[in-house]
């Protein structure tokens, strides 16, 4: 990571879109400064030679953890819908969807 790779306000604004957050101008400025200092602290990792080190994604090595294909109970939809911010006709109600959102 060199100086050109430092996170910019433009990056922060883009990341906010990805994260579905709306940030004010001031928040963008503040977050840029804060994220930059945290990421700069992270340079101690990149200073190490990690080329031949495999990544670890879980602390305990496990594999082939399965459940059998046996039906169990479902939840009563009324208990779930009563906690939903919007529902109608036994379904979750949301504002209109835009097309193109995958």
């Amino acid at each position: 990571m060199n100086n050109e790779n430092l996170i910019t306000e433009k990056d922060v604004a883009h990341v906010a879109v990805l994260a579905r957050l709306h940030l004010s101008e001031k928040e963008i400025t503040d977050f840029t400064v804060q994220l930059r200092s945290i990421l700069e602290h992270g340079r101690d990792i990149t200073a190490l030679d990690l080329a031949d080190i495999p990544p670890t994604s879980g602390p305990i090595p496990l594999e082939n953890v399965f459940r059998e294909d046996v039906k169990g109970g479902c939840v009563d939809k009324s208990e779930v819908l009563s906690e939903a911010p919007g529902h109608q006709e036994g379904q979750f109600l949301v504002p209109p969807l835009l097309d193109g959102s995958e």
């Binding site: 379904q91 979750f92 109600l93 949301v94 504002p95």
Partner: peptide, 12 residues
Amino acid sequence: RIHAAYGALVDY
């Protein structure tokens, strides 16, 4: 239609 809809229902 997606356009002119006033909302959507979701079934999981």
